[in-house]
């Protein structure tokens, strides 16, 4: 537990480096919701292979690192309604706001984008309210 912040910082620097590679080499903003969403609604049909390759790396590389860990427990919920409702909210919300934690958060805040900062304030607020309602008031998560 006491070392969590060091790994958080190291992982954060890696995430920033990944966004840097995508920006400097490919000339793209590394936004996970935009990369996925462009494949779903067809708005990214001129860059399908690049998007698929990015997602391929994102899905395939983490399990390769697992031998370095004793165990990876993601603590994901088994409640079906939670998974479905949360998925719908995350999918719709990120596309309506045109960005998520990586696009608005990492790539936006770092260039002091007003949109990125406003989005981050409101998704953190939404997340905190969600915990208040679903954990502390309803007690379902």
């Amino acid at each position: 537990m006491h070392q969590d912040w060091i790994w958080g910082l190291v992982g954060g620097l890696m995430i920033g480096a990944a966004a840097g590679v995508f920006l400097l080499i490919n000339g793209r903003i590394m936004g996970a919701s935009g990369i996925i969403g462009g494949l779903i609604d067809g708005s990214g049909r001129d860059s399908v292979s690049e998007r698929v390759a990015f997602l391929g790396g994102l899905i395939a590389v983490p399990p390769l690192l697992v031998p370095l860990y004793s165990n990876v427990d993601t603590h994901i919920t088994q409640k079906i309604w939670v998974l479905v409702l949360a998925g719908l909210l995350v999918g719709a919300g990120t596309r309506i706001a045109n960005g998520c934690t990586s696009g608005h958060g990492v790539c936006g805040i770092s260039r002091l984008s007003l949109r990125g900062i406003v989005a981050t304030v409101f998704y953190l607020l939404g997340g905190a309210l969600s915990l208040v309602v679903f954990r502390h008031i309803l007690g379902v998560i």
Binding site: A86, Y123, S130
Partner: peptide
């Protein structure tokens, strides 16, 4: 959109 996303993120 960000509020909706945040709600799902927390859930």
């Amino acid at each position: 959109g960000s509020l909706l996303f945040g709600a799902g993120w927390g859930l």
